[in-house]
């Protein structure tokens, strides 16, 4: 039996505590935005989950490069873990965005470049999972997964720069703002504090989940090899 590492338990506690603290801060510490009201509070988790999604896909690409150099299957299991978690957080990002957009833009969804490119990014990683499911041989699956994670991540910068290249209505809260954006606001110091804390909390939650998912992959491999041993 694989023993659960002590550090992982510590990380579990830290993740739960910081997530609860971030939720508390969002509801009770962050001030109400004057124009948008309570729905603006979605912003803290919306951006944090978007950040974690991007981070996760970046991790998958970097791990892909490492795998192609080292050819060690351990890096492949990190890659799958990162992609799966990235998909989940990008989905949270899109859904929270829709919840905010309903009252502010008066629609759940609009064909804005920012929204569209984020969704295409999500589809890249669905394609990643489909590619993997089409290949049985673990070594080849790992190689193709690594290549696709690298190629797929190349199109991610477009998502990031789309708010600057296209004329878009999605607000840019950090840095300069397009006057055409709708629902933009300036952060007060308290908002900035809550925002930074939720970024930190989501990052801790991310690394905790990543570690768990990697362990799950290892355990699944053990089960598989034990089953083969029993059959033999």
């Amino acid at each position: 039996m694989l023993q659960k590492p002590k550090l992982l338990t510590v990380l579990d506690v830290a993740a739960i505590a910081s997530f609860l603290a971030a939720t508390g801060l969002v509801f009770f510490y962050a001030p109400l935005e004057r124009v948008m009201g309570a729905v603006q509070k979605v912003f803290y988790f919306h951006v944090a989950s978007g950040w974690v999604g991007m981070l996760s896909f970046a991790v998958a690409a970097v791990v892909g490069v490492i795998y192609l150099i080292r050819k060690d299957l351990k890096w492949d299991s990190v890659g799958v873990a990162a992609v799966e978690i990235g998909i989940a957080f990008t989905l949270i990002n899109v859904v929270t965005g829709a919840i905010w957009a309903r009252p502010i833009w008066n629609t759940w969804w609009t064909w804005d470049p920012r929204l569209t490119t984020a969704t295409i990014m999500e589809l890249v990683y669905f394609a990643y999972l489909m590619l993997r499911s089409g290949i049985e041989e673990p070594e080849r699956r790992a190689r193709f997964g690594a290549v696709y994670a690298i190629i797929g991540f190349l199109s991610v910068p477009l998502t990031f720069f789309s708010i600057r290249l296209f004329r878009t209505i999605h607000p840019v809260v950090i840095g300069s703002n397009d006057p055409g954006a709708m629902g933009a606001f300036d952060m007060t110091p308290r908002m900035t504090q809550v925002f930074l804390f939720s970024l930190l909390a989501f990052t801790i939650v991310y690394f905790d989940l990543l570690w768990h998912r990697i362990r799950l992959g290892k355990l699944a491999e053990r089960v598989e090899s034990l089953r083969l041993k029993l059959q033999a």
């Binding site: 490119t117 295409i120 990014m121 589809l123 890249v124 394609a127 489909m130 590619l131 089409g134 290949i135 049985e136 080849r140 193709f144 290549v147 696709y148 190629i151 797929g152 190349l154 199109s155 477009l158």
Partner: peptide, 30 residues
């Protein structure tokens, strides 16, 4: 450029023909 790479991956997978558009379209978007 990206299509030739992805098609050489797609032909080695079990789902070959249907896989290439799924792999290629989202990546080629830029």
């Amino acid at each position: 450029a990206v299509g030739t790479l992805l098609s050489s991956m797609a032909v080695q997978a079990r789902t070959r023909d249907i896989l290439l558009p799924i792999l290629l379209f989202p990546v080629a978007v830029p």
